[in-house]
Amino acid sequence: MVPDIYRIASRTEEFPGTCTLGITPHSGGRAGNFSAGQFNMLYAFGAGEVAISMSGSAQDGTYIHTIRSQGLATQALHRLREGEFLGVRGPFGSGWPMEQVAGRHLLIVAGGLGMAPLRPVIYSLLEGKTQPSSAQLFYGARRPQEMLYTGELQRWQQALKVVTTVDHAETEWPGQIGVITKPLGAATLDAENTVVFLCGPEVMMRFCIQVLLGKGVSADAIYLSMERNMKCAIGHCGHCQWGPNFICKDGPVFRYGDIRAWFDIRAL
């Protein structure tokens, strides 16, 4: 599978080392149709390919990707500027089960960069395409400076209640300090009528799930997005195996009730 060529139409530095790219088709490909929760394989010329989740609205003919400069491929992607080119294969993988949301309480829980694959869900709420009975976002980051999409948070309040917390902060931070499980644990939930979309570091998801189960949310109402090394995204390279699952084609979004046996095994 050869990547299509995309051009960088916009580039925003979210905070040092993390940027958001808006990319449009240059030759081949047609940005658009994807489900919230899916991902693309982004190719930086000569440096490599990396799986990056969809972070924009499914509608506007542009793919939006938020990238943290970390390894060789993401460093190269982070160096790209507006007008430059990259390769794109995708979209791949399963999305968030948006059909589960209508009429229920939607609880979105994001940790750090885990906010990126959840933003299309929030856009879907704002666009009125998905109508939960109510919605809440719990968003935790390491520091206030490392919080994504802060310029949009206010607008998001139209569609859902937003609770933010950071691990460390200076005195001027008005929000909460501490790990996300604290405000999550304090939240009032109609547990039986709640569906949860969860994405963040694995350890954070582990603890959030404990809190949620403790509050009576069913394992089958919790959906989470997993990350593993990925080379091909089409189930051939074997890298993203996780028990019997291939994260690339069976995930990255899984229902906790389906994978809890695997989630509890370390170094799987």
Binding site: Y43, G46, E49, H236, C237, G238, H239
Partner: peptide
């Protein structure tokens, strides 16, 4: 055994 990886070079 079918696992593979990729090498990108310039």
């Amino acid at each position: 055994c079918f696992c593979s990886t990729v090498e990108d070079t310039t």
